[in-house]
Simulated assay, not measured.
Amino acid sequence: MRIKICGMKYPENIIEVGSLLPDYMGFIFWEKSSRFFDGTMPDLPQSIQKVGVFVDATLEEIISKIEKYNLNLIQLHGNESVEFCQNLKKLDIKIIKVFSVNDDFNFEVLKEYEAVCDYFLFDTKGELPGGNGVTFNWKLLEKYNLAKPFFLSGGIGLEDLEKIKKINLPIHAIDVNSKFEMEPGLKNTKLCKDALRCISM
């Protein structure tokens, strides 16, 4: 199982966390986020995949950020259509399509996106498109019946990792953010290191 550390913001902190070699690092390009990234991207080890997080951005905005920051994956956190994903796929970049889950979530909606994205990401439905800092009921994932690998997100803390490792589903990566911070966008490198150690065991 892999790990994605999302909501990176400050160059020195990005370098510190990057030295731990997480599989993915996420950068949020939604201006309303307290973790909005608009800075200079430090050089990172080549093994780290850079993920750009967008909320209902235009194709032009996404292309601009791909080129500026040399992004490896695009995470779509809004109401992006299947057609929009198809157009984005033409750029030859991997796509993570996010779905916000609550007790009423209909897993059938995933089927039409299966062919136009590389991964799903399941987050907790809340007031914000993401970063609400709370987990959802993972028992709901038992309704997931597709082979498409996914990222699991939503208020995940260090204490949750052992439980997640026992979930018998195609979890590609765990996405961590607010529970590993000292303030929005500033990650606690010790906690991140502990998380990476836990996942690798």
Rank of each mutant, 00 (worst) to 15 (best):
C6K: 11
C6Y: 12
G7Y: 13
G7A: 14
M8G: 13
M8W: 05
K9H: 13
G18D: 04
L20D: 13
L21I: 13
M25A: 06
M25Y: 05
F27I: 05
F27A: 07
F29Y: 10
W30N: 06
K32P: 02
S33N: 04
S33Q: 05
S34M: 11
S34I: 09
S34E: 12
F36K: 07
F37E: 02
D38M: 04
D43A: 14
I48S: 08
Q49V: 03
D56Y: 08
L59V: 00
L59A: 01
E67F: 12
E67D: 14
E67H: 11
Y69S: 05
Y69H: 01
G78H: 05
E80M: 01
E80W: 06
S81N: 09
S81T: 15
F84H: 05
D92Y: 05
D92K: 11
I93D: 10
I96Y: 09
K97C: 13
N102Q: 14
N102G: 10
D103C: 03
F105P: 05
F105H: 01
N106T: 10
F107D: 15
F107T: 15
L110C: 09
Y113E: 02
C117P: 01
D118I: 04
D118H: 07
Y119W: 14
L121T: 08
F122P: 10
D123F: 12
T124K: 09
G126H: 04
L128P: 09
N132S: 03
V134L: 12
T135I: 10
W138G: 07
E142L: 06
L146K: 09
L146T: 08
L146Q: 12
L152E: 06
G154F: 04
I156P: 13
E159T: 11
K166Q: 15
K166F: 03
P170M: 01
S178M: 12
E181S: 10
E181I: 12
E183P: 15
P184I: 07
T189P: 01
K190W: 11
C192I: 05
D194T: 08
A195T: 10
L196M: 10
L196F: 00
L196V: 04
L196T: 02
S200T: 15
